[in-house]
């Protein structure tokens, strides 16, 4: 656990010191701010509907969700491996799992900060006298963090499996889209392939697990475990790959 904490702090500090992170943060906040006002105007002021839009219902949310995690995780392992830093890290008194989990948690924390702008909008609204549905907003935020964790897990796996950061980002991006669109694709593909894909798609339906609980202001242990379990699987696979790297050469 200590190893995880050390790696987490090192990575988080590293993230907040890179210009890329601030550019991403600024772009996301700008986009969310623009959408917030535009949606409030077009909906006639439906506060909860708009905040829900920013936390799961809107296309911008998913665009950020599939692009940001790979961009943040792409350097985590592949670049360190390329530059030789990973060798030092792996010889340090921390386990491979601690390295992967620590880095992943740092990315998740960064994304949690990024999504916290939506509750901040809620807070400003509260201060102006319009009370949003805090239960729904809070759960929507938790859902956003969990989806970020899942997609960051995929990004970690792509980073561990790639030799260059660019390839890692590309693979992570493609995997994220694939995971997101898998249920849609499975339902549109007929025949035997569709039949094979369908059960997998049902087990990996990110949208459904987000929309049936967190986005509606409900906390559901089944949906929580869905995100945690899949994130855990991707991190487990990442650890195995890092471990394999050690023995492969």
């Amino acid at each position: 656990m200590k190893g995880v904490t050390v790696i987490f702090r090192r990575e988080l500090a590293g993230l907040f010191l890179t210009p890329l992170a601030w550019v991403l943060l600024l772009a996301a906040v700008g986009l969310n701010g623009f959408l917030l006002i535009a949606m409030l105007r077009s909906s006639g002021g439906d506060v909860n509907g708009v905040l829900n839009f920013l936390l799961g219902l809107g296309g911008a949310y998913w665009m950020l969700m599939i692009t940001l995690p790979p961009l943040l995780t792409m350097r985590s392992i592949s670049e360190e491996s390329k530059s030789g830093q990973l060798e030092f890290l792996l010889t340090a008194p921390v386990t491979d799992a601690a390295v992967v989990v620590g880095k992943h948690l740092a990315v998740c924390a960064f994304l949690a900060v990024l999504w916290s702008v939506v509750p901040l909008y809620g807070l400003v609204l509260q201060l102006t006298g319009v009370t949003p549905d805090w239960g729904q907003l809070g759960m929507g935020y938790l859902g956003a963090v969990l989806v970020s964790a899942l997609f960051s897990g995929i990004g970690m796996l792509a980073s561990a499996a790639s030799s260059t950061p660019l390839l890692a980002a590309f693979l992570g991006f493609v995997f994220n889209i694939a995971v997101l669109l898998l249920p849609l694709g499975a339902s549109s593909v007929g025949g035997r392939v569709g039949g094979l894909l369908q059960p997998i798609a049902e087990r990996l339906n990110v949208l459904q697990h987000l929309q049936t609980s967190f986005m509606r202001g409900a906390f559901d242990t089944a949906d929580l475990f869905f995100f945690l379990a899949w994130t855990g699987l991707f991190l487990f696979a990442s650890v195995r790959i890092v471990e394999a790297r050690r023995w492969w050469t």
Binding site: L36, G45, D46, V124, L125
Partner: peptide, 21 residues
């Protein structure tokens, strides 16, 4: 279920816009 913000007459939207933009 709807919590509505007065987007036509109130000042809340202006405050929010200043903060968000």
């Amino acid at each position: 279920e709807r919590t509505m913000l007065d987007v036509y007459r109130g000042t809340e939207l202006i405050t929010l816009q200043r903060f968000a933009w």
